[in-house]
Design a binder for these strands. Structure first.
Lengths: 239, 239
DNA sequence: TCAAAAGTGTTGCTGTTACACCCATGT
DNA sequence: ACATGGGTGTAACAGCAACACTTTTGA
């Protein structure tokens, strides 16, 4: 099967051979103002015109599944380096009405400030939704979304991936609110501070918050290198 | 594409349409005599003749991926109800030498006593391997195996799936040895006993071990119903 | 001076670890 | 008798939850 793509260098429309019967769908999360949000695309044409869906696409013959997902994310969000992980394949016989298509689910975590929408020629609109505002999506996309949420909740506790949802510089309260929102629990501020700081995974910056009507909080940055180093020594992140 | 299958009712060879370019590969684990083992199949013909591989197969047009994996396991092990979970899709462009084929990895946990080999017409031989005895497998099967092991190690700590590897009735030492083998750690016997028994997930049977040259241990059974009930109340299994 | 959030200190409790010890059974 | 694993008891420690408290800042 042959599909049309926009060539990333020339900007021209080119035709590429894709794998038949397999697609990719991606749940893109971000964190804004205390809310976990998901990027949805409104289909512009075809049988699902007007309905909201997860961003998705085809896999080219010469690229790996991960590369296809990366490309897709780049095409949709303009971001080159982001946290991306495969969930699993979804393949109920009736999931896609026009034939037997298996889709491979991915989820990505991005900083909202990095986001720059580039709606492709098959998407009329793209919008961030708070979880509670998401209604019925096309095909089995609600199932993929729910699975990704479960996965995110489990993983965020056991790996420092939450930082991918925050700006480069953040306060401890922002971090705590992120965990509260993702996990759906309340946390104790003093205890959370101590727990996180004890891990020595944050770089305390000299800077502070600006323009807040209360004592300005210190800003922190996640220390990737130190996390790598500690992990090699057997450290296990756990919130 | 059309492939041949043995009809499960009549035993006759029938032809069925399958999804092109997608296969399933399954890591089947069992626990025997203190060792974690994996079932491998020796290919009887084709380009990989004589090499060992994970059991695998095609997905029929009318069945879901999970159903295909179930069927495959039934064809290979003769077991109808077993613990089965999808890992993820593996799809490097060069993974399969004769074309672009994406495979969906599964892993299954079985009790060795339930096993009854039914080598299909594409497998000359099937054999249980201890982990350390597994050499180079075909295609990317080593990668799938390693991924499944990581997944198993993470999951066995946070869900009571280890019981699927043991006989219906087992001793606490057997259970502890299972955890030691899977996780690659040493555990303290008294502490392990208490931790497990405190969960109230085991039914203490009246029976004891037989024919052992030491004090016979009490036999236990995993209480599925109670686990369901506790989980609904918010209980989280953790070893 | 008040509100709001930053940030520190303290206490009691719980769960875990480490290890000593006794029990039952076949050879 | 002894080796082997079954099974119980306990003291010390570490980590955490709960909450009281002080500090800083803008309005």
């Amino acid at each position: 099967m042959v599909k049309q793509f926009i060539d990333e260098e020339s900007g021209k429309i080119i035709e590429k051979s894709v794998i038949n019967a397999i697609t990719i769908d991606c749940v893109i999360f971000t964190f804004d103002n205390g809310n976990l949000e998901v990027l949805l695309i409104q289909h512009a044409n075809g049988i699902s015109k007007g309905k909201w869906a997860l961003p998705g696409g085809w896999i080219k013959e010469e690229e790996s599944i991960d590369e296809a997902a990366q490309r897709l994310l780049r095409e949709t969000t303009g971001i080159k380096d982001l946290y991306l992980e495969q969930l699993k394949a979804f393949g109920e016989p009736g999931r896609f009405p026009l034939g037997r298509v298996i889709t491979i689910g991915y989820y990505a975590l991005i900083k909202k400030s990095d986001f720059d929408i580039k709606a492709g020629f098959t998407a009329a609109d793209a919008k961030w939704f708070k979880l509670k505002d998401i209604g019925n999506l096309i095909y089995d996309h609600n199932e993929i979304l729910n699975f990704s949420l479960e996965h995110l909740r489990a993983k965020v506790k056991r790996a420092p991936i939450g930082f991918n949802l925050l700006p480069e510089k953040f306060t401890l309260l922002q971090l705590m609110q992120l965990y509260q929102e993702v996990l759906g629990i309340q946390l104790d501020k003093p205890n959370f501070r101590r727990k996180i700081l004890k891990m020595k995974l944050l770089i305390a910056l000299e800077e502070k918050e600006m323009n807040v009507s209360h004592r300005a909080a210190k800003l922190y940055q996640f220390d990737h290198d130190r996390y790598e180093m500690l992990t090699r020594k057997g450290f296990i992140f756990e919130v």
